[in-house]
């Protein structure tokens, strides 16, 4: 879902927030067989922007938590594959269907990330199902910037006009 943020982010903020998505995207391409690389890239980007503005921190956190969820799913698939190649396990229908499932979820996340990177660059606020809600709970508005966003941001956000 796309909407407006509690304040209008400036050009530098939208670029940084958009880069957060791109960072995970590039890492996804490079580190496809090693799921940890995606998370590391998002983690580095998150820490380098943790003192940034609310808008940037919010989007970096959304990227990070989505990567973390995928990391868990991908790690299971990775260790299962390793057990098949080097261990006693063999290829089963459950394994193949699991690989297809995580592939579909990764692909969906990939498409959503591209979409989020483009829309965020335009200054729009991309709020994902579950990860957006989780980010609302994790990131609080920066008091130094005196932004009057509340902890019930999710509710106020829903009242914003939505463009798709």
């Amino acid at each position: 879902m796309t909407g407006k943020f509690v304040y209008t982010p400036n050009d530098m903020e939208t670029e940084r927030a958009s880069n957060g998505y791109l960072m995970s995207l590039l890492a996804l391409m490079v580190g496809m067989p090693l799921p940890i690389i995606n998370l590391l890239a998002s983690l580095i980007f998150y820490f380098s922007n943790r003192k940034s503005t609310y808008f940037v921190r919010w989007h970096c956190t959304q990227t990070l938590v989505s990567q973390l969820t995928l990391l868990i799913c991908n790690s299971v698939g990775f260790s299962w594959t390793m057990a098949i190649i080097f261990g006693p396990k063999h290829i089963t229908n459950a394994y193949i269907s699991y690989v297809i499932t995580i592939f579909l979820f990764n692909l969906t996340e990939f498409i959503f990330t591209i979409n989020a990177a483009i829309r965020t660059r335009k200054g729009l606020h991309v709020h994902w199902w579950f990860w957006g809600t989780l980010t609302d709970l994790l990131v609080s508005p920066d008091p130094e910037n005196n932004i009057q966003a509340t902890n019930t941001f999710a509710n106020s956000w829903e009242k914003q006009p939505i463009s798709s």
Binding site: I91, T92, N93, A94, I96, S97, T101
Partner: peptide
Amino acid sequence: WFLLGRVNYV
């Protein structure tokens, strides 16, 4: 995962 697992890939 469950629905995809209904197919006998092997």
